[in-house]
Design a binder for these strands. Structure first.
Lengths: 112, 112
DNA sequence: CACATATGCAACCATATGGTTGCCTTTCGA
DNA sequence: TCGAAAGGCAACCATATGGTTGCATATGTG
């Protein structure tokens, strides 16, 4: 199921990075990671935007697969989906690995 | 110079993630990482958008500190700035570390 | 039941984003 | 010197984004 070509992996990671590319959303992700599941009201208390804005951000994160929401009574709880975070990290690792390899090739060429 | 509070680090990383959050830009970054410095014309050959679009993307990446451009004759060469990539990776590591700690706390609480 | 809390839905708005085309300038090479 | 190659600049366009306000709905509680 997983694509072998690293390029396809990169392509899939772009939306995840886009979702992380907002200061408010990054705070929400960090909050959910360190503090565990939380309701919208609780999350709104930590940022400086409206509850509606928080709701929108959570949906963006959900579309990227970074969080998951589940209803509990009258509260909508949100929790992190750590697999996607790992995916993003692996993507950076792949790119960095290529960089390291390029450095190594350069070093070898110079010392030749 | 580096902020101690992890939150400040997160806030600084958001623009980097935003810059990485586009498929074309991610391809450019990967290309520059694995293939070394390249001109705009060379980079344009690898993607399916106009040269102008590539130029815009490169400036976005430059504003995020991910690439650096330098003129060589009539060519504008672009190269990767690996420090920013590491910064993004560290940011994900910090978040994941909090997640791991939360998991550990949960495990400890259950086994208590 | 009545009220406060928690959320959803929709409209609306300003600005950012990703992309294009057209034209001008610089530089290399025959 | 003259044409082609490589870029820069600017205008323009459609859509996405981040945010708001207003109102409706569901749910817990005294």
């Amino acid at each position: 199921m997983l694509p072998r070509r690293p390029e396809a992996k990169l392509h899939a990671a772009a939306p995840v990075f886009a979702a992380l590319g907002d200061a408010t959303r990054l705070r929400l992700v960090a909050r959910l990671c360190s503090g565990g599941p939380a309701s919208i009201a609780a999350l709104t208390a930590n940022v400086d935007v409206t509850r509606q804005a928080v709701t929108k951000h959570l949906h963006v994160l959900q579309d990227a697969g970074l969080v998951r929401g589940l209803r509990q009574g009258r509260e909508q709880m949100w929790e992190i989906e750590p697999a996607k975070l790992d995916e993003a990290r692996q993507c950076l690792d792949i790119i960095s690995a290529h960089w390291d390899a390029a450095i190594e090739r350069l070093r070898a060429a110079v010392e030749e």
